[in-house]
């Protein structure tokens, strides 16, 4: 049977604290949390600065050419903070170290391949959903936005529907 480490924080306490962080984000900046937005900023500024001719043809990069610096955005700073916070937590709990987690029935190579594919899908989906699990689903739930809750149900609904077919990956 799988061995689950127990030195993690109580999930409800962690959730409560995360809720307070989210609340603080609303109180201070009037917006929720988000992680995919920073990735979008990275892509936009990287592409638009290295291949401006290509980027100019797409409305997706329009904001970049309107003078706003995507790397100076709120979400990018949030992501930088996340990196610092996660490193801090990992260091305190002694969980730092390079490794690859994979299910017992697949190789490291397969795991990395699927991780790449999953990331690709998530990056694509987060654009349609206007935010990822944190930006759209979690923050949307806090303000009771229809779109946010819809996205959340679609994420988890799809996840449960297809989980059986990919069980080899994890169990």
């Amino acid at each position: 049977m799988r061995h689950i480490r127990t030195n993690y924080m109580n999930p409800y306490l962690a959730g409560f604290l995360l809720g307070l962080v989210l609340l603080a984000s609303f109180v201070v900046s009037g917006r929720g949390l988000g992680a995919s937005g920073a990735a979008k900023s990275v892509v936009i500024s990287a592409v638009a600065s290295s291949a401006p001719d290509y980027a100019e043809q797409s409305a997706f990069y329009a904001d970049y050419f309107q003078g706003s610096n995507p790397m100076g955005s709120w979400l990018v700073f949030l992501a930088v903070g996340m990196i610092m916070g996660a490193f801090l937590s990992g260091a305190i709990a002694n969980r730092l170290g390079f490794k690859t987690e994979h299910g017992p029935r697949i190789s490291v190579r397969t795991r990395l391949l699927f991780a790449l594919g999953g990331g690709l899908l998530f990056g694509l989906g987060a654009q349609f959903g206007r935010g990822c699990t944190s930006g759209s689903a979690l923050s949307g739930m806090a303000v009771l936005s229809s779109g946010g809750l819809l996205t959340m149900m679609a994420i988890f609904g799809t996840g449960y529907l297809i989980a059986y077919f990919f069980r080899k990956l994890w169990t």
């Binding site: 109580n10 409800y12 306490l13 409560f16 604290l17 307070l20």
Partner: peptide, 13 residues
């Protein structure tokens, strides 16, 4: 009991 959770939620509410 989970004392930390109880205390912090009690404080919040």
């Amino acid at each position: 009991k989970n004392q930390t959770l109880n205390d912090s939620t009690l404080l919040f509410f």
